[in-house]
Structures are given as C-alpha cells and as structure tokens.
Amino acid sequence: MKIGIVCPYSWDVPGGVQFHIRDLAEHLIRLGHEVSVLAPADDETPLPPYVVSAGRAVPVPYNGSVARLNFGFLSAARVRRWLHDGVFDVIHIHEPASPSLGLLSCWAAQGPIVATFHTSNPRSRAMIAAYPILQPALEKISARIAVSEYARRTLVEHLGGDAVVIPNGVDVDFFAKADPNPDWSGHTLGFIGRIDEPRKGLPVLMAAFPAIVEQCPDVRLLVAGRGDEEEAVASLPAELRSRVEFLGMVSDEDKARLLRSVDVYVAPNTGGESFGIILVEALSAGAAVLASDLDAFAQVLDQGAAGELFANEDAGSLATAAVALLRDPARRAELSARGSAHVRRFDWSTVGADILAVYETVTDGAAAVAADERIPLRTRLGFSRDG
C-alpha cells in the first residue's frame, strides 16, 4: 500500500505527535508498505529518507503551547506537488483542524483520507469559531481516529462526527531492553519534557523538591529537555540546585536508558494532554510512574493501578507521593510489574494493526464506490438493456 502521512508540526522540534508519526511510518515500512511523510522542517534539519520537507515552520500559540506550524501559499503548492507525485492509496492526516499542513492537505487531497485527532481541549473557542472554515475540509475525511477518549470528546463537541479511539503506539521492547546507566541510578527522580513550557509542569516539581529532599536527603532529580536551565532552578534554595542535573536533549537511546535507570519517573503536567506518550514509554521501561491526575493520564495509568497519581498542580501532594515511593521499593516493584503488563496494549504490534485496519476499510470502500460508478446507470437502477 502507498501511504502518505501528513505531520502538522515541525519535524526538528521533539513532540508526541512527531514521535507518533515517525514510529508509525517506520512500523509500516518494516511491514513492506511504501510510506512518505510530509512535514515542516528547517533547511538544515537532517531528515529520514521517508520524510519530505514542506519548508520552514513558524511558532504559533496552539492548545496551551507554542507549536511550529507551516501554512500559506508556498506550503499549499508543496502539498499539491507531494500529493501529485505520491499517487497514494490513502492519505493519513494528523491534526487536520490545526492551521498547518493537515488542513492544507485536507483541502487538496482526493481519494481516501484518514485523520487522527490528538488535541484534548474541551473549551476551545477558536476551534468553535473556525468550524465554518474547517467544515468543507473535514467533510472529505473518510475515517477519523482519536488517540484517546478525551481527544474524541473534543472532536465530537467542537467539530461534530465521531472517531474510533486508537492510542498512540510505542515500541515496548525498545524501552524494556535498554541498559540502565549506573550514573543515573540510586534514589533518583526523572523528568523529560520542554523545560520552559509551563504545562509540562516542571515548576510544580521544583516547588515540591525541597520537601522531597527534606524527607529523602540523598535524592537527585534528572531533567532531560530543552529550555533555560538557570531559570528552571531559580525558585530552589541555592543549596539544593546542585541536586538537579540537567541532561539537555537526549537521544532516543538515552531516553530509554534514563527511564530504565530512575527510581521514579515524574509527570507533573498541568493540562492540555490528550494521551501522554511519555507515560507509556516510562511504563515500557519498567519505571515506577508518578503523574498528575489529569483524565488522560489516569486513563493511560489504568486509573492508578499502573502508576501513582497526585492532585494536579499540588506540589504538596506530589512531594508526599514521591517520598512514599522513594521509601518503598516493594511498591515501586509492584507498580513496575503492573505497568509492564498493562503497557503491552500500546505496542505497535497492536496499534499498527488497528490503524492498518482503518486504512483497509477506507480503501476498500473507495474501490467499491469506483467500481459502482463504472456500472452504467441503467444497470444500477435495475433496468435491463431492452427495458
């Protein structure tokens, strides 16, 4: 099958949607499908052979964050050229309602279109206001996927229609088989995310850290991600700042090693999350996970059976839960075992098969319609040649 996948966000800026698209493309390629991904990318960005650049992206406030999107006449021309050259059996557009390549592709594409909705935002006035503009494009979509029940709810409430829920995928064994790094082990908490994006919750973790250190004097915090490191620790007492080790941007391999090494992985995100791929990666690595009790996070963690939850944006609740886990290796081992079993449902072997089933449904439907259109109208209406 020839599959075209459209990524709305800049390929060179790490994010859950980009990782999902990358892993989906590589999973499909391993299965023997021909895949091309269209994505915004700066000229100097090294790209995998299956990615086609649609040009430089610009930062735009979107869903409580700043997304790097690509929109305009030049982008539209590149979309049309990619569609023309690709002759795809199916187009898979991610975030078709965002002002980026997804919407442009929806307008320009012909044939079967599958759309995946990642956003969870129950109070999006912008999405409601934009509906009249979006409607003609969205009506061309053959099948809709939502990565969680919360993303599905946003779609239903703002844009109408419905979607099948297929979660983000992860290569479970890649994380499960990573080698721990001894330098990152031993009474350690871990955090991975954009340091200077407030909704990722690092300020909440920093506010909780002094109370954690008071109860667990030898604890360290390992932080991986881009952002202003000095600003991140500015709220901490000077004597505690050396307990926070910034690792900068890490490779996929080092991310897996980090998650395999820490005693507790902390996800203090404050909102705007429709899924939580980092939780799935942490569970795959066997980490004991402590996360804010966002609805999407609670669903990924099986309502607290596969990981501990604390009250969102409550530093005291986070500190209490972290101290309890650091002091209780048996509880950490229990969470690790439960999480490792629970996370198998998110493996690409399952998620990829579900997405392929959607592709096959829409392409079979399109083929049936095309075949029907080739039958003379008199025959379709039940008239004989002599009637």
Results as ranks from 00 to 15, higher is better:
Ser10Gln: 15
Trp11Val: 08
His20Tyr: 11
Arg22Leu: 01
Leu31His: 13
His33Cys: 12
His33Phe: 07
Pro40Trp: 00
Glu44Trp: 12
Pro49Ser: 15
Arg56Val: 14
Pro61Gly: 10
Tyr62Ile: 07
Val66Asp: 08
Ala67Glu: 14
Asn70Arg: 15
Ala76Met: 09
Arg78Thr: 09
His84Lys: 11
Val90Asn: 05
His92Ser: 04
Ile93Pro: 00
Pro96Cys: 02
Ser98Leu: 06
Gly102Cys: 11
Gly102Lys: 10
Thr116Met: 03
Asn121Phe: 11
Pro122Ser: 01
Ala129Val: 09
Pro132Cys: 04
Leu134Gly: 03
Leu134Thr: 00
Leu138Val: 03
Lys140Asp: 05
Arg144Glu: 01
Ser148Val: 04
Asp171Met: 08
Leu189Ile: 05
Glu197Ile: 08
Leu202Lys: 03
Val204Gly: 05
Pro210Val: 04
Cys216Trp: 11
Asp218Glu: 12
Leu222Met: 04
Gly227Asn: 03
Glu229Asn: 13
Glu231Leu: 12
Ser235Phe: 04
Arg241Met: 08
Ala256Lys: 04
Ser261Thr: 06
Val262Asn: 01
Tyr265Phe: 15
Glu281Thr: 01
Ser284Leu: 06
Gln299Thr: 15
Val300Tyr: 05
Leu301Val: 02
Gln303Lys: 13
Gly304Ser: 07
Ser317Gly: 09
Thr320Glu: 13
Leu326Pro: 05
Arg331Gln: 12
Arg345His: 04
Glu360Met: 13
Glu360Cys: 10
Thr361Glu: 13
Val362Thr: 04
Val369Glu: 12
Ala371Phe: 03
Leu377His: 03
Leu377Arg: 13
Thr379Cys: 03
Thr379Val: 13
Arg385Pro: 02
Asp386Gln: 12
